[in-house]
């Protein structure tokens, strides 16, 4: 565990807490893509099945349980408790366009052709693109609430920090995982446009409105 990895995990944790607080405090999930949240729940449940087979550390297990349970809680809030506030008219990204290629890629390019390993690989590939329905929704409506943009920033920052963690691990531990690195870079690149808007607008106290 190095400082980049820890900062990345904390950023990820913060993103999820911001999202849940936004939904809970405003009693609304307006502006949040339910499709992205379903993809994230799928990412965590397929990746963390090793909770039942391997024990790595208490930190590792607690975080895994947190990510699985909060992603399920988010879906419950969006599709059950605050269903009336869910903006499904703007949440129209076809997730089959992501799920089908990611499944094929997971079956073809993996470290080991075993169920757990293929599911882990699938979840890494899926995570890299899972934010697309959310970004599509923001571009469709042309804006995002400030709290939603904080959530997106923390979520994007987490994988960017992991890239620094991988550079560190490569130099100091000789460890690298090409599948995670390539997917992590793709994931971070997808946020670049948003990062630019966040830094130029939200940090200066303006609302996140897309240029017309």
């Amino acid at each position: 565990m190095n400082v980049f990895r820890l900062a990345g995990d904390l950023s990820h944790l913060l993103a999820i807490i911001i999202l849940l607080l936004k939904i809970w405090k405003t009693r609304s999930c307006a502006g949040i893509s339910g499709r992205s949240q379903i993809l994230f729940a799928l990412v965590y449940t397929t990746r963390y099945l090793d909770l039942f087979t391997n024990f790595i550390s208490l930190y590792n297990s607690v975080m895994k349980v947190f990510f699985i349970s909060t992603s399920c809680a988010t879906i419950y809030l969006m599709y059950v408790k605050f269903k009336a506030t869910y903006d499904h008219n703007h949440d129209t990204f076809r997730i089959g366009f992501l799920l089908i290629p990611v499944t094929i890629l997971g079956l073809l390019i993996n470290h080991d052709f075993t169920p757990l390993e293929v599911l882990w690989t699938f979840s890494i590939y899926l995570e890299s693109v899972a934010i697309l329905p959310q970004l599509f929704m923001v571009s469709k409506t042309g804006d995002a609430e400030t709290i939603t943009s904080h959530y997106l920033f923390c979520l994007g920052l987490y994988r960017a920090l992991y890239i620094f963690n991988w550079i560190y691990r490569y130099y100091f531990e000789g460890f690298y995982d090409l599948i995670a690195i390539v997917a992590g870079v793709v994931q971070t690149v997808l946020y670049c446009d948003f990062f630019y808007l966040y830094v130029t607008r939200v940090i200066k106290g303006k609302a996140l409105k897309l240029p017309a």
């Binding site: 990895r5 995990d9 990820h12 990746r47 090793d50 087979t53 391997n54 790595i56 550390s57 590792n60 975080m63 895994k64 990510f67 470290h111 080991d112 075993t114 757990l116 390993e117 882990w120 992991y162 963690n165 995982d177 995670a180």
Partner: peptide
């Protein structure tokens, strides 16, 4: 031949 590769990252 490991059944699964240990992934310590989240």
């Amino acid at each position: 031949n490991r059944y699964t590769i240990l992934h310590d990252e989240l």
